[in-house]
Structures are given as structure tokens and as C-alpha cells.
């Protein structure tokens, strides 16, 4: 499965809805992801992609839309 589809799946698990039509939506500003869910997101990304995202490097502004998350994951794989 591609990076994009996996990220969309993870976000669907967290929010209950398909984000594929809203890839540039700010997930924090719109309230789609709260702080507890941010932790879940981070853990899921680490598990599914085997990437190491240090929580201390997790600057919200770099991970706030589905497209940014996809690009970040791609750059870290």
C-alpha cells in the first residue's frame, strides 16, 4: 500500500472519516485531531512505516495537513 493510502487510513481510524478529498485541510485548526489523537497518530506512523519520529521533533506546523504528513513520511522512509 502506498504512503498516501496508509496515511489516509490512519486518519480515517482517528477521525472516522475519509480525508482523501481534503488533503490540504489543517487537521488541528479544524478540530479533526486533538492532542490525545496526535499521540496516536505519531505512534501509528512509527508502527506502520517503521520510521522514527522523535516526539521532540514533532513540530505541529510541519504535520498539520494530510499532504504534509505524507511528504514528511516520504522524506523519512
Amino acid at each position: 500500500m502506498g504512503t498516501k493510502q496508509t496515511v489516509v487510513d490512519i486518519l480515517k481510524d482517528l477521525t472516522g472519516s475519509d480525508v482523501s478529498g481534503n488533503l490540504d485541510e489543517n487537521l488541528f485548526d479544524s478540530g479533526m485531531i486533538d492532542s490525545m489523537a496526535t499521540v496516536e497518530l505519531l505512534l501509528e506512523l512509527q508502527e506502520r512505516f517503521g520510521i522514527d519520529v522523535p516526539v521532540s521533533e514533532f513540530d505541529r506546523s510541519e504535520w498539520d495537513t494530510p499532504n504534509k504528513i505524507i511528504a514528511k513520511v516520504e522524506s523519512m522512509k
Binding site: 477521525t15 472516522g16 472519516s17 475519509d18 480525508v19 478529498g21 481534503n22 485541510e25 479544524s30 478540530g31 479533526m32
Partner: peptide, 15 residues
């Protein structure tokens, strides 16, 4: 309306 849009609208109102 896509579920994402509905959820977003609901959350905005609930806030």
C-alpha cells in the same frame, strides 16, 4: 456531503 465536511461542520458548531 462527504463525511469529513460534515464532521468538520459539526465540530465547529460544537466548539
Amino acid at each position: 456531503r462527504p463525511a469529513f465536511e460534515v464532521t468538520k461542520a459539526l465540530k465547529q458548531q460544537l466548539r
